[in-house]
Nucleic acid binder design. Structure first.
Lengths: 225, 225, 225, 225
DNA sequence: AATGAATGAGAGTTCATTCAT
DNA sequence: GATGAATGAACTCTCATTCAT
């Protein structure tokens, strides 16, 4: 981050360090401000006026850094989303396997939400208000989840009836669970807060054993092979 | 103040259409119009002008029936939500039990979405744009789901480690699955469409057997009581 | 359709006269205000704020009557242009013929400009700022002029070397003369004012005899002295 | 940036003067860029950003050379106007006299416009958007035209009813003709283009013989009404 | 009760100009 | 002198809501 001699513009700006750094600072502060504002009032009410006021710059400055309000919105989720991914990776012990690993990821996610309550809105409103970013984020997240499940599958950690093709819908459902549980028990509520342990346990039970106990009942009707 | 007696309409030749009924008609047509508009363009762009235009009344008329645009929005989901609930109930055979019943409900939900693609947006945007209605809807839906699961529990259809307290988070997660699967494979995508059978099968597998096969592994690590 | 009986109140607006009239009044006052503002500061600085302030209505009202600022601009020249045409027609004695008629029209035009000094800017800036209106106006004006000249041609009032084909460029040049003379000696200057008689006389000389007298030099014919 | 410090001063018109000359270069390139931009999009949309981008300098540099955008605009027409004047002088054979000389000047003007289509907009929009420059330009041009006509008058080339006082309005009208003819038949239209010969002939007829053939009628009659 | 024009606050965006580097 | 980001006033336009008819 310190070295900025790597890129050498043809026009030769004299003192690129302070200027470029200051510019980068402002850009970042705009993103941070936007994240905070969107987290608080949602995309729809995150006006440029509000964002720039929080960032402490003039409204016009906004447009030196982003083509439009929408362009900022489209960067918001990727930025914070990456942060979330790194956070979760850092929090999950590399040796964990199977269901334990999955539950650990869930917990890490909830912890991230506790520390970054804005993320909830940034993510879930993005579906309609920053759809490109949302689609990209979901794609990345799903792909990562499928990869992890795929490794579990290879290791034989999954039930025998689970096939490669099931992994995507299952990843999706587990992500869905994250979202709804945090909405209902955690950051999505007013005031945010921690998702209680017993809720995580319910997740673990569902993921570990499924819900219904009658053998084959669920699969029989709809599955022909 | 007009007479709102609707049972005997043939009283005077002056007024043929009862006022109250006509008023109710307009109110309903506004709700229908709003549902269509929100389904098409979302809450944010569902302007009063657009809704009244579709309903065929003047803009001012809107405010004779609803205190504000937000008040209409707050009625939208309850209305359409009830319709969805009735639809699902009607489609699920009363004799189905256990996982088969749950899967049938999932299918019915997807069918409702196919026939009412607007519902997807009305429901999922409501979380931020009609939060009161959304909370109420979720409460109702969850309560219904929990009741159903509770009956399954009483009948001994569930795994033995599932307790009464697990039912709410589990209901939530199954609802979450509905939402994300329809977003990804069905009505949430451009052009709507049917969720494929193999995706329903993946749901059935998860709900039936769980995901991970190591017995107890998932629960052990994270549960200390 | 005029009936506004209480028994048949479903479609018919009750008292359309005052409402429609008031609306028309506001629309007209916006046009008048716009004409005044454009005349004073030009199209570029004729902001909606300025126009509505002068018209005494709210800014939003503007958009109940015109799709956009440009749409008003596009109506401005046709409106005032028609007024000018009617004015000139009214001022020119129907029995005048030949050069006398042409000069009378020139005088009438100058008089109109004296009474409507805004017209100058409305017309001449329109070329770039309301090009469609300008083109339409010029087409109308040129066509009218050509028609008048054509009648003179038929009556044998014109020089023998003038043919039908010359009429359009000549009409254009006479219109050009109007414009530049008023710019330089009349309404185009600060403070407006009347174009002096001796300037009109110069016009009359040019139109009457041409400028150069050498036989054969320009086109030849009909010149001595 | 580049080594422009060649310090050998010889007899040849090669100058050293690194600073002043470089400064002059930038200033000129800004004027050239402005001319191109104004010609393309008009004064109103000729933003400082656009001009400096075309000139290849930073926006701030602009204000080292011009007090304001308007100050540049005020220099634009004088610069290009002088170029036009020199072009016309160079193209008109010094021995031509009378109407032939005038028509030759008209043709030269049209040729200049063909080669410099930007000039049309620079000149005609200047009336409202660079009024000082426009007034100065017109003054210069009119003075030159009057001088030329005055020489014709001294040589007896003009009609006897033309007096010294007529020369200014007549010069103005001939300039007006230039402008409108080029607007309608030449550079003013989309795509520019050459004014056809037959249009020039119409001009020649008007200037040569006038329009109406009744001698004297034009002047006398019009003073009564 | 129905109408639909009037309202005005507030939105996103532009751009001439300034100024620290 | 050259730079180019920062500034903030001004712009056009939208729309939920009001209210006289």
């Amino acid at each position: 981050m310190q070295d900025s001699n790597a890129t050498h513009a043809s026009r030769a700006p004299r003192r690129r360090v302070p200027r470029a750094e200051r510019s980068e600072q402002i850009r970042n502060s705009l993103i941070e401000a936007a994240a905070a504002v969107v987290g608080e009032v949602g995309y729809a009410d995150a006006s440029v006026a509000r964002i720039t006021a929080l960032a402490g710059v003039a409204q016009g400055t906004f447009y030196n850094h982003f083509e439009s309000r929408q362009h900022l919105f489209d960067e918001l989720l990727p930025q914070i989303g990456q942060r979330m991914i790194r956070f979760v990776i850092a929090r999950v012990h590399p040796d964990l396997r199977g269901a334990a690993r999955d539950v650990a990821r869930l917990r890490a996610y909830f912890e991230f939400l506790e520390e970054n309550p804005a993320f909830y809105r940034i993510l879930y409103e993005a579906e309609t208000l920053a759809p490109v970013a949302h689609a990209q984020h979901m794609k990345t997240i799903i792909a990562g989840y499928v990869r992890a499940l795929s490794r579990s599958l290879d290791r034989g950690e999954l039930h025998q009836d689970i096939t490669e093709r099931d992994l995507e819908p299952i990843a999706l459902m587990l992500l869905a669970a994250r979202g709804y549980l945090s909405m209902h028990y955690g950051a999505g509520r007013e005031g945010g807060g921690k998702v209680p342990d017993w809720v995580v346990d319910s997740y673990a039970k569902l993921v570990g054993n499924g819900l219904f106990s009658e053998p084959g009942a669920a699969v029989d009707k709809s599955n022909e092979h």
